[in-house]
Amino acid sequence: MAGRGADLLRGLWWAKDGFDRLAPLALLLTLSPLLLIVALWIRLDSPGSPIYTQERIGINGKAFRIWKFRSMRPGADAELRALLEATGNDGTPLFKPETDPRITRVEDRLRGCRCPRRPLSA
């Protein structure tokens, strides 16, 4: 009996592993036309790459890189400190400003419709 249980668990592991590999691929293929339209929309709206990459710190201080659609003009990171000082913050970005002059028209439209946005990978 122990042999049958182990075989069943091994079979379930293979099924889960297959699903974990195929589901994201199927989702990417299904959503790729929409992702392409959004990328083109951002590219036509403002110069620069439509994809923004950023290094973040995760669990146990391990660094990882994320990719997401760019919602601000190129070089917006460098403008952050001056923007915070102009709005009266002490230089720490705890909350995003209500009216941020760095955002693109695409992002302004997305914020207006309250569309949820997620990183492309994490």
Rank of each mutant, 00 (worst) to 15 (best):
G11F: 03
R43D: 01
G11M: 07
E55Q: 11
G3Y: 11
L40W: 07
L110N: 03
G88W: 02
R73M: 04
K62T: 15
R117N: 00
A15I: 14
R111L: 13
R105T: 10
A122F: 15
R118F: 12
D17E: 14
A39E: 06
R118P: 07
A63S: 12
P101K: 09
D7M: 14
D7G: 13
P116L: 09
L83Q: 06
P47I: 00
I66F: 01
D7R: 10
K96T: 13
M1F: 10
P116Q: 07
P116F: 06
E85F: 01
L40V: 11
E107D: 15
W41K: 09
R56S: 00
M72V: 07
R10V: 14
T104K: 07
A15T: 14
A26G: 10
L12V: 13
W41G: 05
P97D: 06
R73V: 11
K96C: 02
R114Y: 03
A78D: 15
L110S: 06
D17L: 15
W41S: 10
E107A: 15
T30W: 15
A6F: 06
A26N: 05
R109M: 14
P33S: 07
W41C: 05
R43Y: 01
P24A: 03
L110E: 00
R21K: 13
G11V: 02
S121K: 10
A26W: 03
D100W: 02
L22Q: 00
K68S: 04
L84C: 01
F64M: 05
R81E: 12
C115D: 08
G18S: 12
L29D: 00
A39L: 03
L12G: 11
E107F: 12
K16I: 09
W14V: 13
A78K: 07
L27E: 06
E107T: 11
D100T: 02
P74R: 04
T99Y: 08
G18T: 07
I37M: 08
G112D: 05
A6P: 08
V106T: 14
G5Y: 02
V38S: 06
G11N: 06
Q54V: 08
